[in-house]
Amino acid sequence: MIKSEKLVYEYTRNTDDGSEIRSKVLDGLDIDIKDGQFISIVGHNGSGKSTLARHLNALLTPTGGTLWVNGLDTSDENNTLLIRQNTGMVFQNPDNQIVANVVEEDVAFALENTGVPTGEIWRRVEKSLATVGMLKYRSTAPNHLSGGQKQRVAIAGVLAMKPKCIVLDESTAMLDPGGRKEVIEAVRELNEKENINIILITHYMEETIYSDRIFVMNKGKIVMDGMPECIFSDVSVLEKYNLEAPPAVYIADRLKKAGLNIKKSVLSTQDLVSVLAEYKKGVNNGNSNKGS
């Protein structure tokens, strides 16, 4: 469970002429995330979403307000290690977060750091590699893996800590479409089967359609908060925050504006296909005007 009250992160920067600029990256956030939820955080560059992510496992600590992760205050240094075990983090660049030269040793890294006994390390490494479907690559060098596979190894490395929550900080940004799908499928499965809280930070709106809740961030504030159907119900609001709706939502929106009668909410391409198929049936029955 993650809860924050008036969470503020601000830093001062010295300019060349000696004056100080204070920028508030996070501006009084109040969040309340329940266990087992799949949360997406979207926002354009500089909206503060990555900064928020880094607060969630105490890589950054608030300069104002309080953030509790599983009831632990992140500002308290004694809690840091425990918070990091509970909240794992997967970063953007797959190469820059793999420490060891062999897949299984990398998955073991966090366990070695926290002093887990050797036998237990082996069991947990095996289990987490199997969960993300990377067990057969256990003794491969990470350089020989694809981007999506590397991110799955990174997820396994986090999973081995048995976390309650996994934060993916733009982990799909550097991957090709195939790799993105691999990673999203892996975390969705973790969310459904292991009931692990997933916090997905992303640029790609189509990845957010399966989430329980979406936060839209802008200038350090959460400006929209709701279920995907609700967030994507009005494309023009998203555009105000420099965000693009997923392609299917966008097309449905345009069709609606062109006069097509779409009542169901459309999120994925499948939704759109079924809605259009229904519409076509209607046309064939002869009770509607010309299709496009």
């Binding site: 890589l59 990091r84 970063f91 420490v99 890294f109 070695e112 050797t118 390390i121 800590m161």
Partner: peptide, 27 residues
């Protein structure tokens, strides 16, 4: 340098805090 910065962050996030109290997968 950029990579080193990223890696340091990733190691921090995975509870790295020096050699003290570390165990080994393959001792």
């Amino acid at each position: 340098m950029e990579r080193a910065k990223d890696l340091a962050l990733a190691m921090d996030a995975r509870c790295y805090h020096g050699g003290e109290g570390r165990t080994k997968m393959k001792p």
